[in-house]
């Protein structure tokens, strides 16, 4: 009985996790190397519009501190194709570079432990 309860509880827990993941789309934390690469790329490619370490008033460019951390598709689309004041970058930034910048942005600029 105890085993059955555990199984049910475990199944419910897993289901809960998978629902939560489906709802938020949150991705696993990036590796420290990927985060560092993203922070460096952000500083050199993005910070003059989006501010050092993503701190900017948000009146000219998007305040990336407010970018939803489950917004991978939206992020990639904006970076690759441009949106409003954002220029398109797909012909110059490689996929792995955008991936690294996304790793930096979706962690809110906080390095993974």
């Amino acid at each position: 009985m105890k085993v059955l309860t555990c199984l049910i509880a475990g199944t419910l827990f897993c289901a809960g996790l998978s629902i939560a993941h489906a709802q938020t789309g949150e991705e696993p934390a990036p590796s420290p190397e990927q985060f560092a690469k993203g922070a460096n790329l952000f500083a050199h490619t993005c910070s003059h519009c989006h501010g050092p370490e993503m701190v900017n008033p948000g009146n000219f460019s998007f305040d990336l501190r407010k970018f939803p951390h489950d917004g991978r598709e939206r992020f990639f689309n904006s970076v690759r194709n441009g949106k409003k004041a954002m220029p398109p970058w797909k012909d110059i930034l490689h996929q792995d570079e955008i991936e690294a910048i996304w790793a930096y942005v979706r962690t809110g600029g906080v390095a993974p432990q």
């Binding site: 501010g51 900017n56 008033p57 009146n59």
Partner: peptide
């Protein structure tokens, strides 16, 4: 607004200036 200080200084106080 939209010049170098606004974009690059990280001065959050300007969030109130559209």
């Amino acid at each position: 607004i939209g010049g170098v200080y606004n974009m690059f200084s990280g001065d959050d106080r300007l969030a109130k200036v559209p």
